[in-house]
Amino acid sequence: MISNTTSTASRANRRILKATALILATSANVDPTRRRALKRCLIYMGDVSDVVTSRIDWKRFRYNRNNSSYLMLLNVCFMVLNGLIPQRDKEHSTRQNA
């Protein structure tokens, strides 16, 4: 289980970011251009170990001014990993033509 103590905070954050990027990079619901961009970013995360996303203890994360830059990123990761971001159908675009 990942806990977010002071010594492992940035390591845990990077592991979650990598796991989310891997899932999005292999998803058929993501635009191919964005998938390629994610795969290029994953090259730089080669030394970051993998994590089992179902074992992340989201309640234990604490943020302060030193790690607050991860707040939005990890919230997006939480939504992606828990299926909370709605899918957009090509037929029913969220944009409406005026």
Rank of each mutant, 00 (worst) to 15 (best):
R11E: 08
I2Q: 08
N67R: 01
S10N: 13
T20A: 00
H92R: 11
Q87I: 06
V51A: 04
N97R: 08
K59F: 06
N64T: 10
L84F: 12
T53F: 09
Y70K: 01
R11C: 04
S3F: 09
L42V: 04
H92W: 10
T5I: 08
D31P: 04
L22Q: 09
S49T: 11
Q96L: 13
W58H: 05
M79D: 14
M72Q: 15
Y70R: 01
D89Y: 08
G83Q: 08
T94G: 10
F61Y: 15
L17W: 00
R65F: 10
T5A: 10
M45I: 04
A98N: 12
N82L: 03
N66L: 09
S10C: 05
S27T: 03
T5D: 12
I43P: 03
K39L: 11
L22K: 06
A25P: 00
R62N: 09
N64F: 09
S69E: 09
M72K: 14
A12I: 02
N13P: 00
L81P: 03
N13T: 03
I85K: 06
T53R: 05
N97G: 07
V30D: 02
L71E: 07
L71A: 07
M45C: 11
T53N: 05
I85Y: 04
S3P: 00
I16R: 00
S54Y: 01
D50I: 02
S49A: 14
N75F: 06
K59E: 12
T26H: 12
L81T: 03
S68L: 13
G46T: 09
E91L: 15
W58P: 05
L24Y: 08
D57W: 07
L84S: 05
V80A: 14
A12M: 05
I56C: 02
N29A: 11
N29H: 05
A98Y: 12
G46S: 14
S27V: 02
A98V: 11
P86D: 05
A37E: 11
F61N: 08
A25F: 04
S93D: 15
Y70N: 10
V52Q: 10
T5E: 10
D57E: 13
T20K: 00
P32A: 09
K59G: 04
Y63N: 13
F78M: 02
K39D: 04
K39P: 02
T33F: 12
T33A: 14
N29F: 06
L84G: 13
Q87C: 03
D89N: 11
M45E: 14
R88K: 14
I16V: 11
S54T: 09
R15A: 11
D31V: 08
F61R: 13
M1V: 07
